[in-house]
Write a protein that binds this DNA or RNA. Structure first.
Lengths: 218, 218
DNA sequence: GTCTATAACCGGATAGAC
DNA sequence: GTCTATCCGGTTATAGAC
């Protein structure tokens, strides 16, 4: 009897602790995304992140031992989103629909989660010191799969003959630009972020130029 | 006589000093471009820059009182190059030639001076704290001029109806991507930078897709 | 699990001799 | 104009009381 009770207590306590840990980790990770995006890896300080999360700095180090560990966790989350954005691409058979869906998904991602895009961009700018291996293995394999599909479309005469990798680079470049260079776009738009209508127009124009440019609309 | 001699001496000495100053400033600025591009503004240290320039840290501070002043000088140089890249654009009458020339010039700039492109990109990523005003005034006026020309082409039916600003954003995004995301491209190209031939292919494909995409080839 | 205090270190900038 | 030594402020990370 006594044994059972104490077991229950231990389990209850352990569950609650896990909930506390999870909830605190989420708070910290959300704060870290903001601060890393705003100041870069070097410019971000654990003090700023802790302040943003509303906890003492020491608590942050209790949950994430080092700044680099925290940063890696943030990058991992972003990488998963990146790969998942291709779902639309894979589900569609037609080149027009697959590419349109992918471009629109990436544009939406830039609109709704620009911070993550900027953290990714900075990591690449710095030479991808922490994610180089992931790029070479996981992203490379991911890209190969999509390259094959595009090659099939070319062989079937559905789109112009072109280098599929360079097409993907173009799509990444254009869509992520709206997140990564947001401050420049704002400065060139009367100090206003693009309105929903302006962004919709951008999305449509980007999609149309690329699809027409590769002969998918011929 | 004595007076003349001393005047000459002073002038000679002054000229030599100016040459020393100019030559040292150039060394430091070149080193600063490398280090700022490789580590970002926060990650770059005056010690690293001084080492790269082959001088003691104190000398660097003799020529540029603060790290921020040095960084501003670097940014100024980059901004001038950016604006100058539009010369081809302005010299050509035909939309095809003007845009082709501009895209190719920007691609060449990404190829030959990727470090500068990355410094610019990081500054924008961080919200353009130091160059916001230049963007709002100088770059904005620069862009307006090009927007007018594109609008004329649209009205003359030479290219499709589109938002000229978004077209320019697309061109910037795609061309600068080859400098800013070089490490990602390398990881997806068997850990090799694009060869001259690969880059040439990229340049041609980028130009073709955009020109065809906006109906300039119809 | 939380928090205050602090150790250990590093970076920007300068003093002052040469 | 050059260089060594140093100050000062800020950063990561941890010790140890609660």
């Amino acid at each position: 009897m006594k044994n059972d009770e104490s077991l229950v207590k231990v389990r209850t306590k352990s569950v609650r602790k896990n909930q506390i840990r999870l909830s605190n980790e989420r708070r910290i990770l959300a704060a870290a995304v903001k601060i890393f995006a705003g100041f870069g890896y070097q410019g971000a300080t654990t003090r700023k992140i802790a302040e943003e999360a509303g906890i003492p700095k020491a608590n942050l180090h209790y949950y994430f031992q080092t700044k680099e560990q925290l940063y890696r966790r943030v990058l991992d989350g972003i990488f998963k989103d990146w790969l998942a954005a291709a779902n639309t691409f894979d589900e569609c058979v037609e080149p027009i629909e697959a590419l349109r869906g992918y471009i629109e998904t990436k544009m939406e991602l830039s609109r709704k989660r620009p911070l993550e895009s900027r953290i990714w961009a900075e990591e690449i700018l710095r030479g991808a010191p922490l994610i180089q291996h992931e790029l070479e293995v996981t992203l490379s394999a991911w890209l190969d799969t999509r390259v094959k599909r595009i090659t099939d479309w070319i062989n079937a005469g559905r789109i112009d003959a072109l280098n599929p990798r360079i097409l993907m680079f173009m799509i990444w470049a254009v869509t992520q630009h709206f997140a990564d260079f947001e401050s420049q776009i704002r400065a060139l738009n009367q100090q206003q972020n693009l309105s929903d209508n302006q962004f919709k127009e951008a999305k449509q124009q980007v999609t149309r130029i690329i699809l027409k440019g590769i002969g998918a609309l011929d």
